[in-house]
Write a protein that binds this DNA or RNA. Structure first.
Lengths: 256, 256
DNA sequence: GGATATCGGTTCATTATTTGAACCATTATT
DNA sequence: AATAATGGTTCAAATAATGAACCGATATCC
């Protein structure tokens, strides 16, 4: 791995659950030598990608990242556009709604709305979702470029639960159904007792760029709930797609 | 400069005005060899920090940055907390309002609200503000750690206009006034014909972490306008500080 | 239409940077 | 008082980064 990759994988050790980490911890988890880890952290700190707490000496992600993310967001106003509709959907369904954007080979959770109830599905911002075993992934692949789909189906497909689909044919079927239906369904593909529906958000070129999904405990989910949430998530995805692409319906032919 | 620094300075070439750049362009602007530039871009792309447009082959900032920025934001909900108040202030003043966060040695513009009028001050997201020549910078330093202030006053201080204060003593006086008054005033310190007021947003430790500012064309700004905007920006900053710190007024003694 | 310039991308011997075991100084634990 | 963490530093050895020259493909110009 190149030095740049190492520096970035250091950044990727931070999460919502553990937003601050010490030098030794970072060194241990990354597998890099302590001296190396520190040199990388100093370089990252010098550019505002990492900050060091004056008191605890622990490190955390820096403001420089916010800056760059906002510059990106100015070009692709994905969050700005989608978040209000995620909120609406969360209110309407009273279940967890999460928004994801595609990155490299997985979906990245960029926004989450949790319902105000104790028994709920918990999703963290920044969480990475595999394509084959989540409703979001299936919805994404249903409208993704062939290359991305092939890359996913070629790689090793982890079975996270007894229900996870790992047969390429079964996954392809799942995608086909999602395409016809307008939304995907994933029954405990990533975690026991969780059932999700999702729909793809399309870019101007007609290919998916992200997804919106509703995740709920299976125990309180009837078939009618699935259908209702599915239609709602589909409507939200379509609305976001249209707002992103200037209400240009022509372009959205693939989803029509 | 280390490899990591080079990679990051490549990222910093992107801006709201130029969100997509080609390989040759990036190589030229960074001063790195084309081969080096490309190797860095490939490394960055592999981690989602940069994306390449399939058609034009141009590069742009990637989704991985959004992910990390959101993780940071989950710990420091600066934007979430502040943006509604920035909006309010923009509506109330009918002038440009911008929000900044401190990073390394400057303030980073993380949010902007522009009024719906042609003649206005334009500020871009991601824009970097020097500490000594902006209302935000003065407001920040008025409540910053001594080290940060000393570092600023020690370095070379550019005179951007004929009005820019470059004397450390004059800048210190400006800070003192801001501390007493509750908000800073900067009269054409960065650009001719622009007058701004700003107030510091404080962290739980009582030190500034960012600022909120109102910038307006000097031509339509009377003394009374300055006072009015100053009080408004101060109120907004205080409200943001309180919301960030759980309404703990004790902690905000420094601003009292 | 043919010459020219620019684009993105690649190669590989040379060069400069990164690496990590061993080392401090501090600060909790035991 | 001893032990084991912590964050941080050093420098010879190992490794990765570098860049001039190259390629093929577009775009531009006369």
């Amino acid at each position: 791995m190149g030095t740049v990759g190492k520096a970035i994988s250091l950044l990727e050790l931070f999460s919502v659950a553990e937003p601050e980490l010490g030098l030794s911890d970072l060194s241990r988890r990354s597998g890099f030598d302590k001296a190396t880890t520190r040199r990388l952290l100093v370089a990252l700190t010098g550019h505002g990608f990492v900050e060091q707490d004056a008191g605890t000496r622990h490190y955390r992600l820096g403001a420089g990242l916010s800056r760059l993310a906002r510059i990106r967001e100015a070009r692709f106003p994905f969050l700005q556009t989608a978040v209000p509709l995620v909120r609406e959907l969360a209110t309407a369904t009273a279940e967890t709604v999460h928004l994801s954007e595609f990155g490299i080979d997985r979906l990245v959770t960029v926004h989450v709305e949790h319902p105000a109830r104790a028994n709920r599905v918990n999703v963290d911002i920044g969480q990475l979702l595999p394509l084959h075993s989540t409703a979001s992934g299936i919805a994404y692949m249903a409208f993704a470029r062939d290359e991305a789909v092939r890359a996913c189906l070629a790689g090793p497909l982890d079975a996270f639960t007894a229900h996870t689909l790992v047969e390429p044919a079964a996954i392809a079927r799942s995608m086909d159904e999602a395409r016809v239906r307008g939304y995907s369904i994933c029954d405990q593909g990533l975690e026991e007792g969780v059932i999700s529906v999702a729909a793809a958000i399309l870019a101007a070129d007609g290919f998916a760029l992200g997804t919106i999904a509703v995740a709920a405990p299976k125990a309180r989910t009837a078939a009618a709930d699935i259908a209702q949430r599915g239609l709602a998530v589909m409507a939200a995805a379509r609305e976001i797609s249209m707002r992103l692409n200037g209400d240009n319906l022509q372009i959205l032919r693939r989803q029509a």
